[in-house]
Nucleic acid binder design. Structure first.
Length: 426
DNA sequence: TCTGGGGTCCTAGGACCC
DNA sequence: TCTGGGGTCCTAGGACCC
């Protein structure tokens, strides 16, 4: 095998305007039209079609601030439909796995592939085939960037987004400096708001300049992560692909309220609902939690009324996945931090110190515990079969209309039989 | 009037020990 | 009355990602 065969080749596959693309699947008339998708509560803009980007609509902007542009330009608006996006995402990832098992699913719409074993001259052709297959099998357009490190593949992908072919490889490029020079420092993976400010202050404005800065200086003035980024720009791979799925270490469930909440009862109901949600999640992944954090806060954006934000963490005596115990503990924590006469905007819980159920077979497990285990199992089974919160706790409130705004919901659920479109023969 | 949700990792600083 | 220094562990908060 020649040495070129061994060049590290990492591809980053990224779905274009993913949430927008998912909505377009069911409304093809929206292709080439400006479309945006909003976050929970129709709060922020979290996905934009290229046409919407061209109108100057910014990622993360609050919806109400962009409303003028949206109305004036007839931008199509959707509330987010996460179960749809999750399902489409699984289809995309399954398609990728059909091509290679050397894959790290990085987010709902991105995956890294290790294509090192492919000959350099065939790799571009191969990813074009991948791209076409994803489009054909799922209807989702993607961009693919290939390079010798993760950070460089991000940059290749960034460029691919603007190419018609949707594919860009930097692997065989002798000198990529002219390319790196055109990449703004804040577009480099791992460089956020704070680092951007810091780098610009020190005369580092683009990826090429960061690449040429000394490691010791970066480490001294920032941290190891930043020096890794610079190394990766030099083509030295420091961030490995995580091919094997690792279990998560924490599980957070939180929501903003559609309408501000002032009374304790309503806050309590939201916390109970979050707990049931989170404990169901960790049980489905065979995890136990060591501690729970409850947090509540008022809106940080409103000047009227004072700001209040607080949290409380409580450890469990023994790691648990028992909804009842988790709820009970959460309510004790809530009692600690709740204060009257604030207009609460958000509440949430975090389960942390998660560990494997199998490694925790407890010597003291009693008949009572087995009963609880069986109860949890049947709750999960019922809710899976008949829909979320068929079985719940009285504390979560009865038949409550959820305090969540979703004005532009597409009402499509690809995992629900009753949402199948009907076709009639004429 | 209206500003999302869910993760990971690193570091500084305090507590504690010898 | 004088009052060290170094190590480890833990946690809260910050920065980053999508």
């Amino acid at each position: 095998m020649s040495s070129t065969q061994l060049t590290k080749k990492i591809a980053l596959v990224d779905c274009n305007s993913f949430y927008v693309s998912c909505e377009r699947l069911f409304k093809p008339s929206l292709i080439k039209k400006p479309v945006i998708v909003l976050s929970n509560n129709d709060g922020c803009i979290i996905s934009r079609s290229n046409e919407a980007k061209d109108l100057g609509i910014k990622m993360g902007d609050p919806y109400f601030k962009a409303k003028d542009i949206i109305v004036k330009n007839n931008v199509h608006v959707f509330s987010s439909n996460y179960s749809l996006y999750g399902d489409i995402s699984r289809r995309v990832m399954r398609t990728l796995k059909y091509f290679t098992s050397e894959i790290e699913i990085y987010s709902i719409d991105e995956a890294f592939l290790d294509l090192t074993s492919f000959p350099n001259d065939l790799v571009e052709l191969f990813v074009k085939k991948i791209r076409n297959t994803i489009l054909e099998w799922t209807g989702i357009p993607t961009s693919i960037g290939i390079a010798t490190t993760k950070t460089l593949s991000k940059i290749a992908n960034h460029i691919a987004k603007k190419e018609k072919s949707g594919v860009v490889s930097l692997v065989e490029k002798k000198n990529i400096d002219p390319i790196l020079e055109k990449i703004n420092i804040n577009d480099v993976w791992g460089v956020g708001k704070q680092l951007t400010k810091f780098y610009i202050k020190n005369g580092i404005n683009n990826a090429k300049q960061l690449k040429n800065v000394s490691n010791t200086w970066i480490k001294k003035s920032s941290n190891v992560l930043s020096s890794r980024t610079a190394m990766e720009l030099r083509g030295i791979s420091c961030i490995d692909l995580e091919i094997h799925q690792t279990k998560r270490k924490s599980c957070c469930v939180s929501r903003s309220f559609g309408k501000k909440v002032e009374n304790f009862q309503e806050l309590k109901e939201s916390i109970v609902a979050h707990c049931l949600n989170a404990s169901e999640k960790i049980r489905s992944e065979s995890l136990l939690t060591k501690s729970i954090t409850v947090f509540i806060r008022t809106s940080p954006f409103q000047n009227k009324g004072k700001y209040y934000s607080n949290s409380k963490t409580i450890d469990f005596p023994i790691a648990t996945d028992n909804s009842l115990e988790i709820v009970k503990t959460a309510l004790i924590a809530l009692d600690y931090i709740f204060k009257e006469s604030f207009r609460y905007q958000k509440s949430g819980i975090i389960l942390s110190g998660l560990s494997n159920l199998e490694n925790n077979e407890n010597l003291f497990s009693s008949i009572k515990e087995n009963k609880i285990k069986n109860l949890m199992k049947s709750i999960d089974y019922t809710n899976l079969k008949y829909g979320r919160s068929t079985l719940s706790l009285a504390d979560a409130g009865f038949h409550k209309k959820s305090n969540l705004k979703k004005e532009y919901f597409s009402k499509i659920d690809t995992s629900d039989f009753y949402c199948l479109p009907t076709v009639r023969a004429i």
